[in-house]
Design a protein around this nucleic acid. Structure first.
Lengths: 260, 260
DNA sequence: TAGTGGTCTAGACCACAAT
DNA sequence: TTGTGGTCTAGACCACTAC
């Protein structure tokens, strides 16, 4: 039980490792605003000279700041204070049947003044055990799967995969989820075939971004994602379930809960 | 725009760095279950020998696995596949006035078969700008601040700080938030002084754990936390706001949303 | 005492970006 | 061409853990 305290020894003053003290110094400059967003951080060689140490130790300090998400390092260019893109807010108030005109994603983008875009592709597959359990159907049953990739100002910002039971949507006007003008929102889509969604359940987990996610979402190494497992219900019937993946440090997730 | 693809060169086969290939190999063994939870991972020296390289390169591979959260490294003992404690579920259904007997935290623990415990301390301070904005009061106004630290089976699992306007709770039976038997839940507490909370708003962000949080929550380096900024409202009146901090990879946050 | 990880030195070659 | 970060070698001493 309990993770070890890092070794606190060494060389000079006996308390904190040299690379830690270097990192502390730069971290302080970032926190204080002395080094603002996008500012160049001293290079490994400069640090090594200034602190009378080697490049390896200087590098260790910069690596520590990188995994903390404070700086980004660019091969051949240098290290820079990370610019934190404005937080996107994703609110549970998106789940409403009233507006209906545009998609929740487009509304978020509009509110922030960014230009939304997305691509998607749909196919019919057999449900895995996990998906089947979430939809309350048998594993192996047919489901329509749609994969989306969303961008805001051409910057990738969200991935999602959605599954809908073929037994529910097959043969209806929404069998192919979104043609032309993009996702209107699941509630409105199902309304159009007479299925009234009245409940959405979202389960949020965070974990380190896998390599493919980092690539698709243009995230630096060491960053985390939020993964939202969402299910839409019409009464007790699950009509859609989705995995939504967003960069954890670019999103604020808001939930409004009524207390009864 | 866009983060750089890591350098893909070097030495032997020309595609992936040696330390990456070493990490890939061990990662595969972990994913496949060949190396189960808690299993010992080869030491730096063993890896160096097996892969005909130096300890530094072996170390780099293990460090990569560490920041991914796949292994923990213990000074003097070795490296081990990380045991992922069971996910705690924190559900929005906790916000109800019906049960009232025990605290939401205790109910979570009971459901999981763990033993809950907590410490807290209350003081009266002046509201910072952030807290004042959240409570809709003036900066500098008095608020009761309560800090909690929760454990499950003696393992720290949640930190929180709660602020309540002195103008609302001052002089009432709940001025000192929780005596004796711990937090009953905010809804029940305010019910007892005739204030009917009807809405809770939670905003979730994730970020790398700060050093103090790592220490208090017993988290390894490189892990992230979820930070929930929560506000309780009675009508338009904000009566409580709190910052709740949990280890991101040990919690699943569930929200049930009604669609109207 | 032996084995582990934590830190550090003093070099090397390479890939990439900017000039 | 220059300066940057990415990778690697071949050592060293130290602190911590387990025996």
């Amino acid at each position: 039980m309990g993770y070890p305290i890092p070794c606190q020894h060494v060389t000079g003053d006996g308390t904190r490792a040299l690379y830690q003290r270097i990192a502390d110094d730069i971290r302080r400059q970032i926190d204080s605003g002395e080094l603002g967003e996008g500012a160049r951080v001293p290079s490994e060689s400069v640090i090594a000279t200034n602190w009378s140490t080697t490049r390896i130790t200087a590098r260790q300090a910069l690596e520590a700041l990188r995994v903390e998400g404070l700086i980004v390092r660019q091969h051949g260019r240098g290290s820079f204070v990370r610019t934190r893109p404005a937080l996107r807010t994703r609110s549970s108030t998106r789940y409403t049947r009233s507006p209906g005109e545009t998609s929740p994603f487009a509304r978020d983008a509009q509110r922030e003044g960014t230009t939304p875009a997305w691509t998607h592709e749909t196919d019919r597959i057999r449900a895995t055990e996990d998906v089947a359990a979430r939809l309350g159907i048998e594993a192996g049953a047919h489901v329509m799967r749609t994969r989306y990739r969303y961008t805001a100002d051409e910057r990738p910002i969200q991935l999602s995969v959605s599954w809908e039971p073929f037994g529910v949507v097959g043969g209806t006007a929404i069998e192919e989820p979104e043609e032309g003008d993009g996702p209107r929102g699941v509630v409105a889509r199902f309304d159009s075939i007479g299925i009234r969604i009245d409940r959405v359940v979202e389960r949020i987990e965070a974990r380190a971004a896998a390599e493919g996610e980092r690539r698709q979402l243009d995230m630096p190494d060491g960053m985390w994602v939020q993964r939202i497992a969402r299910t839409h219900y019409a009464g007790e019937l699950a009509v859609e379930t989705a995995d939504i993946t967003v960069p954890a440090d670019r999103y604020q997730l808001e939930y409004v809960i009524e207390v009864k």
